[in-house]
Every structure is written in C-alpha cells, then in structure tokens.
Design a protein around this nucleic acid. Sequence first.
DNA 1: GTCTATAGCTGGATAGAC
DNA 2: GTCTATCCAGCTATAGAC
Lengths: 202, 202
Amino acid sequence: MAKKISTEDKILKSAQEIFHHKGFEGARMQEIADKAEINKGLLHYYYKSKDKLFESVFNIALKQMLSKLNEVLREEIDLFTKIEKLVDSYITVLSINTFIPNFVFQEINRNPDFFIEKFRKFNTNEGIKVFEKQIEEETAKGTIIKIDSKQLIINIISMSIFPFMAKPMAIGILELTEKDYKKIIDDRKKLVAKFTINAIKK
Amino acid sequence: MAKKISTEDKILKSAQEIFHHKGFEGARMQEIADKAEINKGLLHYYYKSKDKLFESVFNIALKQMLSKLNEVLREEIDLFTKIEKLVDSYITVLSINTFIPNFVFQEINRNPDFFIEKFRKFNTNEGIKVFEKQIEEETAKGTIIKIDSKQLIINIISMSIFPFMAKPMAIGILELTEKDYKKIIDDRKKLVAKFTINAIKK
DNA sequence: GTCTATAGCTGGATAGAC
DNA sequence: GTCTATCCAGCTATAGAC
C-alpha cells in the first residue's frame, strides 16, 4: 500500500518546487498552499512564517549541493581517480536537482556577507582542504604541472555546475533541443574529468 | 566643467544598482527613487512601470554579457590566440560588472522559455558559429584532440563566468580575503586559457 | 519636470470556528 | 489539524498641485 504522505511533507515538497523556481522574493505563500492542496492558514500552522519555511528549503538545498562533493573530496584515492569520481557523481547529483545551483547562488547573493560567515564556520571545507593538500603533493612530486590548487578546484567546480545554471542560454545560443542538452550534460560526466586531467598531467 | 547628469540617467544608474543586487522581485521602486534622489512619481514619469524600467536594465546587462564575447568570437585569428583573447577580455569585462552574471541568469530562470526564444532569434550566435567551425577545422587538421566544439565552448565559458557567480561561496569555503579573491580572478585571465590549451593541444 | 498625497491591490500573518 | 474570514502593512501606480 502507498505510504501516506504527511501534510508537513507535502508542504515542504511544494515549497521546494516554488522556492527553487521563483526564489524567496518571487514565491507566494498562496501558491505554495495551492500546490500542497491546503490553505494558507494551515501553512502557517506548520511553519510560523515564510522566512522559517524558506530556511528549511534552503538548508536542504545547500546540503544537496555540498554534501556529496565533500564526501568524495575526502576519500583516500589517487588524484586522477578522485577527479573522475568527483565530476561524475557531482553532475549526477545535479542532474536530479537541476534547479538547485541557480536557487542557491541567487539566494546567497541576496545576503553575501551572512553566507561568507556561514561557510567559514561550517564544516564545508574539510574536504576541500584534503583535496588541496593532495594537489599540492602531486605538484611537488611532479606528476602534474605547477598549478595553484584553488584554481584547479575552481576550474573543476565551474565546469560541473555552470552548465546547469546556463541551461536556457545554452539551449538558445547553441541551438539545442532538450534531448541534445541532456546528452551534452551526460557526456560531461566523463568529458570534464578527461579535459581536466589532460590539462594538468605531465 | 562636469557634465550634468540627466534625471533619466540617474534613474537608470540607480535602477541598475538595485535590480542587479536584488532582482526584479526583490527590487522596490521606492528604493530606486531614493538612490536617484527623486520621488516615486517622477520615476513613473520617465518609465511608465516597473516592468519597463526593468526591461531597460536587463537588456543593457545582457548586452554587456554577450557583445564583447561575440565580438572576439568572430575575429579572424588562430584558435589558441582567440582562446587567450577571449578569456582575457571576458574576465576583464565581468570584473567591472561583477553582478551581471548572477543577475542575468537569475532573471532568465524566472522565464526560461521566453529567453530560449529570444536567444534563438537574436544574433547572439553568429560568433558562436564562427568559433564552432574553427574548432571543427582544427580537430580535422589534427592540431587539437577530438572534442565536441559545443563542449569546448561550454568549458571555456564556464570557467570564465562561474567564479563571479560563486564569489561568496568561494571566499567562504576557500578561506580567502577580498584581496586573495581579486588576485585569483586576475590570475585567471591567463590561467584559464593555458589550462584549456593544455587540455586540447596535441 | 518635479513634487505630495492617495488610491487600490496584493500578500503575509492571525483569529477563531469546527 | 484544518478551514474561513479578515487584518494590516507594503507596494505599484496615478491624480493633481506647482
């Protein structure tokens, strides 16, 4: 038998859909209530305010964006394998949650200073540190070219995330169909890693 | 003597600042009027509605993002030189208009289908086509590895634009100062081109 | 062209019945 | 827990004086 979905879950799911597409300012509590098939009163019964509801949605989104990344970054595998795994699993995660990057960066930019602090304190950077060290070791050993570890990380992340954020522009300018676009994204799971390794290996 | 700034210009400048930072939904006509040191009535005298004012701001932003890019893409220079020039001039342009990418992509995503059409019709893709052809020729000649031209373009653009969009996250997670960040961006004017050429040259 | 005042609506939040 | 009704603040847009 189908598991009964609680009202609270229905609200959260609806709120995610609306907030992800329209952002905090563009979202309407009425629209969220409609999508959840309840009324505004009940919405406020579960989540005291729009801010509170938004906070829940945002924190989940941030976690979806960072936890997988952090997980892979910490694994004890060799650099090239890690880059391959990183790109593949990250693009896979984002393929399921296509709207997350746009949503997250949009909201961060409404309040940049707050988030800089949040990232500094948060444990987001454990994985990054492990990865940075690993890059520096390989550079010292001479297996890869001399490159600033932060720059390399920025390159990998950029190529993995940006295509999701630029989807409508890419489709329009590169004259793609929805299917073309999907294919391109899927190909990137291998391509971005190859490209990166080509660029840095000696 | 100092050129007198017309009221209309003052309004546009103020509107850009507010819209770029807060987006259409987050922007308030009152705030724009305050920044321009006029009252709301006068705002509506020059620009009939918030929509109209927004449209002006958005179209300028889109142009700032695409025209330089398109210009370089069409030049008749060899592939590697073009990549170098492309990255350098593009990062330079965005360094002056840091908020443009976030603003543009946020607004595009509020209305993706409308913009897909706009890009299709617009002459945005002339340059892209020239560049695609050039890549394919070099691939055929064997001077560079076999790579889908669209994927290569996506990589270059991703590495050029994304760091601006992710600024607060980068500063927080990579533990940078504002100065570090500026240095990293500046270094990327050369680094991204080198990285790309390394990745594709045989 | 520029200002003040205000109309008119929208949307978040609460009260209170069931 | 769930609903309806309603309050009230905030916002765009307009009217009208100067």
